[in-house]
Simulated assay, not measured.
Amino acid sequence: MSSDLRDRLVAAVVGGMSCRRAAERFGVSAASAIRWRQLFLLHGTPAAKVQGGDRRSTRIEAHAGFLLATVEAQKDVTLVELQAMLAERGTPVGIGTLWRFFARHGITRKKRPATRPSKTVPMS
């Protein structure tokens, strides 16, 4: 639903119309009209809350300095080793969490050194 529809419905209710009557007028369910009015009364706006997104990265971002310094000092450190170091610091995280952390910071982790290009066979 558009924010404009929510605003118009709430304005009608504030203007004296009942929630059920406003719901009929704007073609929405009575439950939606009641919820939008409650949102308006609690928060001052009937706008929807933000959906999705990252809600847990703040826990690992608190250790960003430590992680980045460790990777800089020890170039061949593995994600499993970093996971163990964080667990020792009291922050148990999964490998995927570490992987996403490095992706956000633009750091790639090669598992093996690059091989020389072949002169006889094209590499893809």
Results as ranks from 00 to 15, higher is better:
26 F>A: 00
71 V>Y: 01
83 Q>D: 00
10 V>L: 06
3 S>L: 11
124 S>I: 15
68 L>T: 09
81 E>M: 06
118 S>G: 05
23 A>F: 07
56 R>K: 14
18 S>Y: 07
87 A>G: 02
14 V>M: 09
4 D>I: 10
86 L>F: 06
20 R>Q: 14
16 G>L: 14
48 A>M: 09
83 Q>S: 04
36 W>E: 06
54 D>M: 03
47 A>K: 13
28 V>L: 05
5 L>V: 08
12 A>M: 09
9 L>D: 01
89 R>L: 15
23 A>D: 05
71 V>N: 01
44 G>S: 07
10 V>D: 04
50 V>H: 06
34 I>T: 13
10 V>Y: 04
18 S>M: 12
54 D>C: 07
21 R>L: 13
49 K>W: 02
110 K>N: 13
20 R>I: 06
19 C>M: 11
99 W>K: 11
48 A>I: 10
47 A>C: 09
117 P>S: 13
82 L>C: 01
42 L>W: 02
51 Q>S: 12
124 S>D: 12
25 R>G: 00
25 R>S: 05
61 E>T: 07
93 V>L: 07
46 P>K: 03
53 G>R: 08
71 V>C: 09
15 G>E: 07
62 A>Q: 10
67 L>G: 08
17 M>F: 02
25 R>A: 10
90 G>E: 09
73 A>S: 05
113 P>A: 10
27 G>W: 04
42 L>A: 15
80 V>M: 02
